[in-house]
Nucleic acid binder design. Structure first.
Lengths: 129, 129
DNA sequence: TAACCGTACTAGTATACATAGTACAGTTGA
DNA sequence: TCAACTGTACTATGTATACTAGTACGGTTA
């Protein structure tokens, strides 16, 4: 379910957290859906349980999941709160990426159509792969 | 000229490299313009020269600058080569960012207009701040 | 009660970052 | 020629973090 690169410079727990965020954001993992337990996922990925727990802790701290001792960890439904901080962060990332693509000579038309496609998929909800 | 966060989890040399890329991409640093020497920048930022050199080595390896022993380091003019690998990487980043913004409830109209603004600025070349 | 769940520790190892110091070769202008 | 600059290449050291291993505790559920 999750593909990790143990040789990467990026920490494993961080790779895992980003993978899960991706699945949540793309609605592959539905709200209140239960995630694999720390120990089960540890066995599947042949990774230490502590590393999985660290990823889950990170995800809970960032508001993507919630954990109930004795029950499990679940996808946290998105709430309409103050996401302005995170949105501003994303805008900054967007600015960097777009600037670099323009710098590398990607035509504006191609860029716009790419973005349109990505938005349609994102708004459609599911992404099947 | 460069603002770094020494307490950040992200390595200093990486922060510096990204800052310089940003300035190159936004045309603040012009092609063939000389960068501060390793020792001078080391003094200004109160950072070890080796750390600066590591950033410069990284930038040279990624094709953003070129270094001439005895002369200095300079912004490398962009060449129309095969940037497809880097562009695909940027598209993947773009996909993630857009998905997350949609997930956080940013309206499509607002998103499009934001992108239009960013593109205009990027294509305009200079960004003054 | 047994088997699962999240959580919280300690301890050890490996790796990467950053610093300090030294050294060498090429370039440049006085 | 010489001094002052440039990039580059080392060694050594201290530190922070990632990851693993192992153990333990309390809550939940069939």
């Amino acid at each position: 379910m999750f593909e990790l690169d143990l040789r990467s410079r990026k920490p494993v727990y961080e790779q895992l957290a980003e993978k899960i965020i991706e699945l949540i954001v793309c609605n592959v993992l539905k709200p209140d859906q239960q995630l694999p337990s720390v120990r089960v996922l540890s066995g599947e990925l042949t990774i230490n349980p502590n590393t999985i727990q660290k990823a889950y802790r990170e995800l809970e701290h960032r508001g993507y999941i919630y954990s109930l001792p004795g029950k499990g960890s679940f996808v946290r439904p998105r709430e309409a709160g103050d996401n302005s901080a995170r949105i501003n962060n994303l805008k900054a990332q967007l600015s960097k990426v777009l600037s670099e693509m323009v710098y590398l000579g990607v035509p504006r038309d191609e860029l716009i159509s790419t973005i349109e496609n990505l938005l349609s998929r994102a708004e459609g909800g599911n992404i099947d792969d």
